[in-house]
Design a protein around this nucleic acid. Structure first.
Lengths: 194, 194
DNA sequence: GTCTATAAGGAGATAGAC
DNA sequence: GTCTATCTCCTTATAGAC
């Protein structure tokens, strides 16, 4: 087999999302991969170790690096354009297969204590809120936004975006969603412009 | 026992939220209730039947009746006050024990097919979005809001509110959250006022 | 309505052959 | 690295006594 370890992680993730962590057995995973239960233990020491490896793999590092690209930051002097493209960029990232699966896994398992594995929607959202707050703080400082609480602005902004993410979790990206993101960005702009 | 059936539902809900539906066994539930596994089957025909009864019990009927009280609707001619109190009222409702448990259950189990039981976050949110859209349509019609897409306005409004709900799901209501709701309502008002 | 006893199968995990 | 075989415990669910 080319890479059984990777295949285990992939099939396990699929199962965890569809049936939940507790609802998926080592036997299920092995069946999907095409090996026996005992074969799994050549790659992972336990079911929990598989979950840990999945979380590790999906938590791909600092989000800011992916979202805050140079060409996006270049637009920051035109804040109306900037926040529209910023919203698009975040949503586009959330739209990737990896990220959709991660969000589903977090939503499903956040309240369930699974050994020492910590799965927190708050931590996930906090990262986006912090990036957004940081940027909005700058925009306020440079008088491109009106004076106000950057943290609250960030929550309003991420709020509608995440609601859309939740609403369309099971549907592929389409024009309708993109149009909504633009409309929301415009409404948001109305409330923060000078 | 006073009402074993009720106690089963209560303890099962607690367990489903903490350990998930698949992660909770009939044995766990019976233990919490203080009877044997087989005793459960005098009240429910299966584990799934318990879940169905819980969903049935928690889905307490039309939300509009609870949220849209007369004293709230009286304020509709002062839209800035109205949306603040509307936001407070929704959040206050979400803050009840029942509703917090329901939201956690929906978040946890929405992706997992459990027999014929349908658990959908979209349906849950749609109810709030529809009520809000309906009200905002009226406000636009009576020129208390500026012209615009009432559906998009509703998503912006419910968006930040639900983000706050997610952020504070594990904490009791406090002044900080209430202050945030008021601030968000104010920002939202800035974007929809004429 | 709750109990004991038990069925029948699924769970996670290990030993040792190949 | 995968297999067969097996262990031990847990799972849902039922039968029948009290």
């Amino acid at each position: 087999m080319k890479n059984t370890k990777e295949k285990i992680l992939q099939k396990a993730l699929d199962l965890f999302v569809i049936k939940g962590y507790s609802g998926s057995s080592i036997r299920d995973i092995a069946k999907e991969v095409g090996i026996r239960e005992s074969g799994i233990y050549n790659h992972f020491s336990s079911k929990q170790a598989i979950l840990e490896a999945i979380i590790e793999k999906l938590s791909s590092g600092p989000v800011a690096k992916v979202i805050l690209t140079d060409d996006l930051l270049d637009k920051i002097t035109e804040p109306e354009i900037f926040i529209r493209d910023f919203a698009r960029k975040i949503f586009e990232f959330w739209q990737t297969e990896n990220e959709r699966a991660l969000i589903k896994l977090i939503l499903s398992e956040q309240f369930h204590a699974i050994g020492e594995v910590e799965i927190s929607l708050n931590s996930y959202l906090e990262e986006y809120l912090n990036i957004t707050k940081m940027i909005f703080t700058e925009l306020i400082k440079h008088k491109l936004f009106k004076k106000g609480n950057a943290g609250i602005f960030a929550e309003s902004f991420i709020g509608f975006l995440f609601l859309l993410r939740l609403k369309y979790l099971d549907f592929p990206s389409n024009k309708e969603v993109l149009k909504k993101i633009d409309e929301h960005s415009k409404i948001f702009w109305e409330s923060v412009k000078k």
